[in-house]
Design a protein around this nucleic acid. Structure first.
Lengths: 165, 165
DNA sequence: GTAGGTGCAAAATCTTTGCATGCCG
DNA sequence: CGGCATGCAAAGATTTTGCACCTAC
């Protein structure tokens, strides 16, 4: 997370502690979609004393300051939240519910949506999030095979595969 | 939740137990945005033995069957999830972070977004969710007053109001 | 009758809080 | 050096699981 971020924190009278610098750098570099636990694991490699609680407090702070966005990626992988540094450009997250791959979509419908909502409701948008779940082109094929297999198995219960032990 | 829903459950070989009928009816009638705990409270009024676990299990089932959608309303009010019966028409949820009011937006940018994503990525969409947080037109005014007050208080710390005990 | 569903208790997961101590500015 | 920040332990909130009993079909 570059100097601009550190700058905006300091401007708010927020202290740049050693722990925060570590977390800020990780969130920025790691690219994308870290959850609190992963961030904690990574941070511990740099400072084994850094506490999980500090991770949560820092994420909450960054969220409040509008420096990171919170996602849940359709709860693929559980109930954690994922974080990414706020980008100038709004985008949707498209997650494959079979392989977990996340694509990002930037496109004018998102801006149009935003403008219409501001216009229609006189609403002041602070946070926006679009998340879409389904099957990517690759997994659609595999998925239909899986479904077919399951159907066959159900139709001929005698041939049902023994559960793995 | 009308006969159509009960029908689609039965078609899947899913039993319509007394508990499920209660929950289905509540989700359908109550209109919108119930979280598991509220649903549980309402259900208990109809059957005091109905267990919280059954609520969770039923919601999970309905989600899997695509009969309800899960929201988080930008975590206004905490980390619970909210549920609403799946509508034919996709819509975004717009939540005021000050008063908690939820508006729904139906509009062509949402359909366009969907079509573009299907086209650009060859993605098969199963779930979609757009949630937007900010201030409604009413709260924008109140909010700016509050911010001003806070600024004044910060500038003249001697006049700071004593914390409530 | 039987597979699937429920209740209960207990656990798992994720996140927050209270408080004494530490350290940034 | 003052007050915000951290670590630690403990609690809180939400959701899941194991298992014996129950019931819809």
């Amino acid at each position: 997370m570059p100097s601009t971020t550190k700058g905006s924190l300091q401007k708010q009278g927020i202290r740049l502690t050693r722990q925060r610098q570590i977390l800020l750098d990780l969130i920025d570099k790691s690219g994308q979609h870290l959850d609190a636990e992963s961030l904690f694991q990574l941070a511990q490699e740099k400072d084994s004393k850094l506490n999980r609680v500090t991770v949560y407090r820092t994420l909450k702070l960054l969220k409040q300051e509008g420096l990171v966005d919170e996602l849940d990626l359709m709860h693929y992988g559980g109930d954690q939240h994922y974080y990414e540094t706020r980008m100038k450009q709004e985008h949707a997250h498209i997650i494959c519910l079979r392989c977990g791959k996340v694509e990002e979509f930037f496109g004018e419908p998102l801006q149009k949506l935003r403008r219409q909502i501001e216009g229609d409701f006189g609403f002041q948008i602070l946070l926006a999030r679009t998340e879409i779940g389904g099957y990517c082109s690759h997994c659609q094929v595999l998925r239909s095979r899986e479904v077919e297999q399951a159907t066959v198995a159900a139709a001929k219960p005698k041939q049902r595969v023994r559960k793995a032990v």
